[in-house]
Each structure stands twice: as C-alpha cells, then as structure tokens.
Design a binder for these strands. Structure first.
Lengths: 238, 238
DNA sequence: CACTGCTCGTGCGATTATCGCACAGAGGTC
DNA sequence: GACCTCTGTGCGATAATCGCACGAGCAGTG
C-alpha cells in the first residue's frame, strides 16, 4: 500500500503537554511490538518510535524487568507474558457475566459470537470472541481489534441506541427500528455482522453483543436471538 | 497477614541503574491497578508507588492516552481495554496450537486444563486455562497467575525434565520416573494438579500442560492422558 | 452558612533523570 | 583479515521531570 511499507509510523497519539514523554515512548514500544509478533531488534524499535538507539535500549531493559517483553532465541524483542497478567483483570466483571451468554449465543447460532465495547468516542474494541464448538468453518476474529464506530454492526447498534441524527447512516435508522444492526463486509471482508446494544439502565449503552456469519440467510431470526442475548446480558449487569 | 494489609508495597523489581525510572513508575501503576480492580484515586496510586501526587497524575494521563487505563463512573482509575490488544499477540503461536489440545484434554478428563510457561528462572505463569463444558463444579484458576517453580505440578514437571539434583524434592524424582508430576494443594488449596512437561527438541522444556482435579482417584490414568497431550503439543510445536 | 477535609488539576522554577555521543565487544559474511 | 550490523556501556550537556504552591470542586458536619 505505502511506497515503503516499512516506514509506516503510528502517531495517532498526540504528545500533549502534561504527558510524560519517557513513559509515552515506553508504551509506544509495547504497541510496536504488538504489531510485530515475529520480534524486532533494538535498532528497529528505536527507528520506529523515533528515539536514539540507546534510549530504546534502556526502555526495553525496563520493560524486560517488568516481564512485559523478553528476548527470543535469536535475541529479538517480543512481548512478554506479564501482559496477560495485566490484561486479565480488565473488565473482569463484564467478561465473567458475558461468557455464558456468548457461549450460548455461539452454540445456538453456530456462529462466532463477540462482545464489543466503546473505546473513546470514535472506536469500538472487541473484548471477547467465542467460536462455536466444532464448527467446520468459523470467522477468525481476534479480541483487541478496534474499528470505527461508524462501521460494523456493533458500532451501528450503539449509534442506534442514541437519538436519531440527521445524516446518520440509513443502517442506523433501520437498526433503531428493528432493535439490531446488520452490516456486510465492513470490519471483515465478506463477513456479515448482526449486533444489538446491551441495554444499560445507567446512561448510554457502551457495549454490544453480536455474531458474525457468512450466509445472508435467516437474518431476522438471527437478529431476534442476538437481541435476546443482549437483553439477558443487560439484566445480568443489573 | 500484614499488620496493615493496606500498606503492602511491591518492590520485587530492583531499580537497576540502566533502567528508566519514569517508565518504571508508569509500569508500576499498571501493576498496582491490576491488583485493585475496583479502582484507585490518583492519591492512592501515588502513595502505593512512592511518588509525588502530581507525578502520578501525569503518568496516569499518559496511560489514559494509550487507553491502558481509564476513569470509571466515580472517576476512579481502572485498567483500560488497550491491554487486551497488547496481550493478544503474546505467545500467539503457542496458544493457537495449544487451544485444541487443551480443549480435548479438558473434555477427556472432565477437569480444568492449563498451560503454564516458565517466567525467568524461578517462576511459572499460567498462560491458558480451559474449563470443561458444562461441568457442575470446576476449578477456578485465572490466566496470568504466577507461582514458584518449586511448587505446583507444572513447575515440578519442568524440574523433572532437567538433570537430577541432590536435594531436589522427592516429587521431582518421582515425576522424572513417571513422566508426569503430581502435587496437592500447593497452588490452589485442596486442588490436585497433574502436569507434564511439553517436550521441546530445541533446548530445555519451558512449558507444561496439566489438569486440576478435586478427587485423588485415578491419578495414573490421568497422568497418562496428560503425558499424551503434552507429547501431542510438543509435536505440533515442531 | 461556614468550616473542615478530602479530592483533583495546573503553572512554574530547581533539580535530576534523561538523552545521545563515543567507544568497544560479539557474531556473521565476503 | 576487512567489513558490516547489532549490541551494550560510561559520561557530560541538556532537556524533561519533579514537586511546591495555588485554586477549584464536592461532601459532610456543626
């Protein structure tokens, strides 16, 4: 895509005053490493985050001490298992309650079920993905993925929970009427998403639950099942 | 346990020269937050990591910008969903290959199956935990947990893979003979662990696979099943 | 209402941690 | 051997950080 696919930087986070530059660089290293699971050298890391090599070296050492990265057999830097310890408590209540609901949804629909949460004002992030047991073909869709709230059934389902806005996508209006949102190929090519907002009795909904399928058949029945799962999870959340 | 259970600090990581103090503090904040899922105030955070309140404030802001923490409804600081994105690629190959093996092991034994990896030289960390479908009673055991390599069946299974050492625990010697290790109540009270080292054709084994059960009946058959699963995973890893 | 006690957030100067140069060791390749 | 790349380490100049002091918000209490 890019002229030099190697030089793709990742600004996206503005270094406001009132932010720690050093910590920012350290966290950038984690992001860079997460985008390069095969591992990177210190020089690579330094180039990608735009600091001197010795600076990257010290930051990597600090991350290593916290077990957030390590060296593989070829001494390349990869993410460390300390991250799974840190990530485990994240939204632990929501995930614990959602698991049985997602399990049942995946089993009932024989499709990949997912739980998305709003991140900031513009994005959605996949928090959980449950694949049906023994499905011959399944949608591969990793937790942690983010996409715009304007795309994908999960985002539209949340938008449909808000007040109608002029200029909103017609799919949002339709979702508001039906109670669930349907999109095709917006997050994953050729994959159809069917999602509903998880009702929240305190404030705006920030969570959606849904499924991903290949076949556009029986979407109404699927929508009903998804809406029911969303209601069930909403009740569990109290 | 402690006189003041609140004031328990967490040094454990020595601030070597050649480490970034600022990044170290930022990472300490993540650790502190992971131990307090209910959320903390800025003042709390500052006290626990031993920095001035304004310093903690700036670090928290930086973490927020990276979506590694956020404020809940009461403006308390909790971990953010960016962590699941960072943690997802960790040991992704190992986890992808281990999942079907763990699924089958949990199903065959009707017990909680787990995958542990060595962390440093002294500790083991749980990387995956799979609970059997529809089990009425299951061992609750979260990924990310760490414990000494000297305790628990997973650690002993790895020690049994090494050369015999004088003074090693008799369980290790026994595990070396049998091919699998058994411990009782060392990691989780009243829970029996049965683990085997995942064979690695390059270097020492660093991974164990095992199950957690309540009943001490049929441990030999269980051990055989676990060893078979470990061999299967070892073959998958090439 | 006033007072207390807690929290949060922000300029801004002194200090200190960081930055990055220069050097040296370790492999690997030609 | 010559060459290249990556790695790791002191150490001085510099710039980022630290932490004081200040003001605001909010809840409880007399």
């Amino acid at each position: 895509m890019n002229p030099t696919a190697q030089s793709r930087a990742l600004p996206e986070i503005v270094v406001d005053s009132g932010m720690s530059k050093t910590l920012h660089h350290g966290l950038l290293i984690l992001r860079v490493l997460s985008e390069h699971p095969q591992g990177l050298t210190v020089t690579d890391v330094a180039e990608r985050i735009g600091v001197h090599r010795t600076v990257a070296h010290r930051l990597v050492r600090t991350l290593e001490a916290h077990q957030l990265c390590r060296r593989d057999q070829q001494r390349r830097i990869v993410l460390g298992t300390g991250l799974v310890t840190l990530a485990e408590p994240v939204e632990q209540d929501l995930r614990a309650l959602a698991r049985p609901v997602l399990d049942e949804l995946a089993e009932a629909t024989r499709a990949t079920a997912h739980l998305l949460v709003r991140e900031g004002t513009q994005d959605m992030r996949a928090l959980m993905v449950v694949e049906p047991r023994g499905a011959l073909v399944h949608v591969s869709f990793r937790p942690g993925q983010t996409h715009s709230i304007q795309q994908g059934s999960g985002g539209l389902a949340l938008l449909a929970g808000g007040p109608p806005r002029s200029g909103e996508r017609p799919e949002v209006t339709e979702a508001r009427a039906k109670g669930y949102a349907v999109t095709m190929g917006e997050v994953i090519p050729a994959v159809i998403g069917v999602s509903a907002a998880v009702p929240s009795h305190r404030g705006e909904a920030t969570t959606s639950i849904g499924v991903s399928v290949f076949e556009p058949a029986g979407l109404d029945a699927l929508g009903g099942t998804v809406v029911e799962a969303a209601k069930r999870l909403g009740n569990l959340l109290g």
